[in-house]
Design a binder for these strands. Sequence first.
RNA 1: GGAGGUGUCGCCUAGUCCGGUCUAUGGCGCCGCACUGCUAAUGCGGUUCGGGUUAACCCCCGUCGAGAGUUCAAAUCUCUCCACCUCCGCCA
Length: 432
Amino acid sequence: MIDLQILRKDPELVREALKRRLMQPELLDAALAADQQRRESIAAFDTLRAEQKTLGKQVAQAQGEAKQALLARTKELAEQVKQAEAAQTLAEAEFTKAALMLPNLVLPEVPDGGEDDYVVLEEHLPPQGRLGKEIQPDFPIRDHVELGRILGGIDLERGAKVSGSRFYFLTGQGARLHSAVLAYAQKFAYDNGFTPVLPPVLVRPEAMAGTGYLDQTAADNVYHLELDDMYLVGTSEVPIAAYHGDEILDPASFPLRYSGTSPCFRREAGAHGKDTRGVIRVHQFDKVEMFVFCSLEQAAAEHARILEMEKAFLTSLGLPFRVIDTAAGDLGLSAARKFDCEAWFPSQDKYRELTSTSNCLDFQARRLRVRMRDAEGGDTRPVATLNGTLIAVPRALVPIMENNQQADGSVVVPEVLRPFLGQDVLEPVEVA
RNA sequence: GGAGGUGUCGCCUAGUCCGGUCUAUGGCGCCGCACUGCUAAUGCGGUUCGGGUUAACCCCCGUCGAGAGUUCAAAUCUCUCCACCUCCGCCA
């Protein structure tokens, strides 16, 4: 949720953000009008309530006829208070609805434009270059689906049989590689000062709404368990952000860095036909996520730090990748700036998103009521939150397998994973 | 899942049976001031979290796990939900 103070005193900042995000400016006017309505209804209620309290005391002390006279008056007043309260509740709900549609501010450094207007910041190639570009192998490049079949590691047919499309079984070497990547990522995060967290993946509506995943378009992508009114999370960002919900944190403990590992569930509604092949876009996957709570002043530095970790991690895996600065029009509502790391997918001859890190400033914290005590010991204010993918599997297995494939369909295991796998090469197997 | 119990502004706690000066008591902690050679001790004052209003202070409203209800009036009565504790059942 956007800062109320900014909305009132500096609405032009919000208008600017809407414009840069290619959103409708009317959203701002609607919110401002709803805010006005809300304030009026609150003032009306407060006045009536104050009068009611005063009269109430007189009733308590009065006797006999005087009391009866007062009661007649207070009854009437009670009715008015009831109406004013209803009006206030309605006005606040209307305002909240309007305010929730407003996006976060956009940091000045963010490139203008839409989805295709990202700016490539860096490109990181291993010494030998990119398979299919700098490297032309003397064998046909296989995609991960075929490699997964050859290695006996990915079983898409049975995934579909048991659970439907976009589901998969990882078996044998595939399951082992998946676990190794996760274990390596968890250790990497821990070594970089992130507290490991294994969060619940079923959450209440408040946690889901607080992180913005029940808004408009996002809601379509979320699994809901109707009987229990609970949601399956699409990322551990949700439970971790809500972890400190309704708390006042001590700034001396900042930055609070957590790395959550969890299964993630996404309905992928609206993605029909996209990435239907393989395990690039699936309904269930595992992810190691970095999440940081800090002050607004620290946010930019933490964002840079998370990005550095993502880069170091992909580099350590030996993957070719590039870093892009997402354009304003392609930012999610809560992000004020977002960087993506895109790995090279040889079978598709292009870069594809593998990790992503967002600086949400105090946008999420405001909704979840995660606050900090201001240094002077006075008021509280919302903290900043940041998130970033360290690794998501099985999607990450795709570039790992494809970039390290050999003529016979075997895959050389990246060196950093070998201690976790106990195996240097994944060898083709006979599949049942 | 069944039975019983508990939930008060950081922590502990009074108040709930029997509705009204509850504008929620007291202690601990914390902050400020005074006193003190320093520390400690002592004294005085302050100390929930939101919201409205404000240049700021003041002031006003809400907030006793959450929500709804009864009533002129709810921490207090009724209902629903949530969390925790004890026991039983079930289960990795």
